[in-house]
């Protein structure tokens, strides 16, 4: 099967139709917020970028970050289709395989989602597993909170 060149992408100009799955490509809707907006290929706004881009089928979150040139250290809270998949410092979704039509939202590291405002919101099983290993679960706001250093009480 002949593969298309890796990673064709275009900034959204309103009403760009989702690319049909031809060969081995998936189309993603990607939102980059705040300082991450500048990683869009042709950023038009300073505060966010909304892109539709195509990646090879089987691409992961790590592949998406590499494709856009986003350093992992700048990746904050992350959503895929509205499910929370990562929080700063946990690297819970880098290996997540992305699918055709997925909406990926990448928040920056100065964003926040306090626990009381995300308690019982949909969380991916991989992130939940990582959070369970932390004392207190997902209660803490900062990745450098007490739970990362304390053994138990």
């Amino acid at each position: 099967m002949r593969l298309r060149p890796r990673g064709s992408s275009e900034a959204n100009s309103g009403g760009v139709p989702r690319a049909e799955r031809v060969g081995a490509l998936i189309t993603l809707e990607v939102w980059l917020y705040g300082p991450l907006a500048r990683y869009a290929p042709a950023p038009s706004k300073a505060s966010y970028s909304q892109l539709h881009l195509s990646l090879p089928d089987g691409s992961t979150m790590r592949d998406l970050l590499r494709h856009l040139g986003i350093p992992q250290a700048e990746k904050g809270i992350t959503f895929v289709n509205g499910d929370l998949t990562d929080m700063p410092g946990l690297r819970a979704d880098l290996g997540r395989v992305l699918h055709d039509g997925d909406r990926v939202g990448l928040l920056h590291t100065r964003s926040m989602w306090p626990f009381q405002y995300r308690f019982l919101a949909k969380t991916s099983p991989q992130l939940e597993k990582k959070l369970r290993r932390r004392d207190g679960g997902g209660v803490f706001h900062s990745s450098r909170a007490r739970s990362s250093t304390r053994e138990g009480r």
Binding site: G105, L107, R110
Partner: peptide
């Protein structure tokens, strides 16, 4: 930097 309004994009992505 962003004030409490930094929650808008967060809750929006969360649906």
């Amino acid at each position: 930097t962003y004030g409490t309004a930094v929650l808008v994009n967060m809750l929006n992505e969360a649906g």
